[in-house]
């Protein structure tokens, strides 16, 4: 830092921006890589079962595995659009 920098306005340094972005993406990717391999297959299987009764597409079904405290939660979300009603 020299004398002239002292009078310039401060803006966020690029290194701290980089660190923040990395922390977010790395923790996201670690979580994803730790999810078991069977999830996509389970999702297709559920989709087929549901489709026997209601016409939905794969975007309307969301399956995720999360850790909350000590227990693991398998969350299944099926959203029904207007056209999906029987």
């Amino acid at each position: 830092m020299n004398l002239f920098d002292f009078f310039r306005p401060k803006k966020p340094k690029s290194a701290s921006v980089a660190k923040e972005r990395l922390q977010i993406i790395v923790s996201h990717e670690r979580r994803r890589s730790s999810t078991p391999d069977f999830l996509p297959q389970l999702q297709t299987d559920i989709l087929q079962v549901v489709r026997k009764y209601i016409q939905i597409n794969e975007n309307q079904i969301k399956l995720s595995l999360d850790k909350r405290g000590d227990c693991e939660v398998l969350e299944l979300n099926i959203s029904l659009s207007e056209s999906g009603k029987p």
Partner: peptide
Amino acid sequence: RVERGDMLSADDVCEI
């Protein structure tokens, strides 16, 4: 460059 804030520090990389 680390001191100027233009490069990730070794501490940052270690922490991540």
